[in-house]
Amino acid sequence: MEIKRKVLAQRTGKMLSRLHDVDQQDLSLFMKRYGIGFVMLGMFLVLSIASPKFLTVTNISNILTTVSLNGLLAMGMVFVITAGGIDLSIGSMLALGSVTIGLVLNATGSIVLASVAAIAACALFGLINGFIVAKFDMFPFVVTLASMLVIRGVAYVLSGGYSFALVKPEFAQIGLGKLFGIIPFPALIFLTVSIIAFVLLQLSKYGRYVYAVGGNIKSATASGVNVLWTRIGTFVISGVAAGTASIIMTARINAAQPNIGVGYEVDAIAACVIGGTSFSGGVSTIPGTFIGIMIIGLIFNGMNLLGINSYWQIIMKGVLIIAAVLMDKLINRKR
């Protein structure tokens, strides 16, 4: 088993290393960035031995579907945290997106228009968040804490405080449907967004600026980076991600609800942190974030399979966040 694990780890290592353009000599750097991946693989192994139901197509696609919501939020959040910020308002954005979908869908009957409207509404608030934070140099924690209330309030105002049914039952298919009858749509959307996030953060010019701003804002300014728009952009991305997540969530509950999404920012932040995103900014990877998301999903799924009380899942998640940050600190201390 030990050998099998090593081979597996090596293979994944090689794959990821090609993916991220890491030279052979930078193995230690690679370990530092993706060391958490071994935790995920370990969980995979333990679960596949402990439960025969674990390593089945149904179960894996189940996991992907359950993590897709949090996954989308985390893929947006990782941009904000990498640039040195934080976005607490994404939970409220889910509600705003849901209400927007309900209103637009019921008025126009167009699924596409409703989805675009939800993303646009969340992106707009992301823009406002980012502008206030970057232009006036205010603490992102405070700004998004406040906008969390504002956005939630807007969702209630727009909906009159009530949840309401969607006139088009087809919309629910976004949450229920499967591509070729195997891959659930939410998982598909999540994977697509992850790839886009990877390209944007790790391969594009904009992503490079995000790393520079989070890594050292003064040096970024002195290197001619447009710090203002780079920071604003991260909040817009977070808004777009939250808007996309709201589509899935609304489809799954098959109703527009102004009271959903409370506390969802916590899981998104947790996924980023477990995935090696530094809270002081400048350090993160999309594969790492993806792993963070999967680990949270595995805790949930694994404990269900093993029949462990769900309250323990919450405790485990908390413990894992501390462990991940502590690991990061210990590694950094060696520097």
């Binding site: 490079r208 790393y211 520079a212 890594g215 003064k218 040096s219 002195a222 530094s278 400048g282």
Partner: peptide
């Protein structure tokens, strides 16, 4: 003002 210490040499040079 010069470097993002925790980013790679490559990223620093090309910024």
């Amino acid at each position: 003002y010069g470097l993002c210490l925790f980013r790679s040499i490559r990223e620093n040079i090309s910024l």
